[in-house]
Amino acid sequence: MAHISVTVDGTSYQGEVEPRKLLVHWLREDIGRVGTVVGCDTSNCGACTVLLNGRSVKSCSVLAVQADGCEVTTIQGLADGNDWHPVQTAFKECHGLQCGYCTPGMVMAAVDLLSENPTPSESEIREGLEGNLCRCTGYHNIVKSVAYAADLMSAGPTKGAK
């Protein structure tokens, strides 16, 4: 067992983990952050995407011990209190989710995409989200959501409406 210390959504967690344990399983099983989900076992689907020190990673392809000393942001820590992140607002406004299972990963990937490219074209959004699979929406409204989030974010620091 290895000792790790990780800050998740602003709270510091310490614990002993098996060295083989994946970050996503540690989040879900050890500290109860079940908002981040598992959709595959080959790192294809991206449902488990979180931010690790501000950049998106598939948390199934990171060992928990590799996150030692890092800061993790999950879908559960994205909103600022009662104020939704603009990407969350945009996904609701544009019907960018149906069953919602890919949503935690899709939203976190979109947040990272927009931090890198605040004004993406449609094809840049599509390429940027290539590592996140959705089976419900055909991506049409996800692409619209991300474009709308870019508009909201470029409009200034006003907080997304609920």
């Binding site: 952050r33 079940v34 908002g35 989900v37 939203v107």
Partner: peptide, 8 residues
């Protein structure tokens, strides 16, 4: 669903 407050 958008806040991870889910019950899968």
């Amino acid at each position: 669903l958008l806040h991870g407050q889910t019950n899968w």
